[in-house]
């Protein structure tokens, strides 16, 4: 199963060596948390993930081929 992680600018300010898109291949349904770890991103650093236009929990199980997951990083503001 091919899954793409799309990393926001704020997450790439922390993990500078990572590309904007990371393609991962898995053989069975997998949680977003596990995918983040496979990509070398500690899940604790990630405040939010989006898939199919909606916010998902990091324990959400990804089951669809060609899923695209947007990974947001933390930021300051106000």
């Amino acid at each position: 199963m091919r899954i793409t992680l799309r990393l926001s600018g704020s997450i790439r300010l922390i993990y500078k060596e990572l590309n904007e898109e990371i393609v991962l291949f898995v053989n069975e349904p997998v949680s977003i948390r596990a995918l983040l770890q496979m990509a070398g991103i500690n899940p604790t650093v990630v405040p939010a993930v989006y898939m199919d236009e909606s916010k998902k929990d990091k324990d959400y199980m990804v089951t669809k081929e060609d899923s695209r997951i947007t990974v947001l990083g933390p930021l300051a503001g106000g």
Binding site: S8, T44, A48, L75
Partner: peptide, 22 residues
Amino acid sequence: KPGFKGWTPEGTAGITNWCNDV
């Protein structure tokens, strides 16, 4: 860009739970 759609809905307040979690 990734993050374009994620930033607007809640604005900076969207970081509240993360700050609490860490």
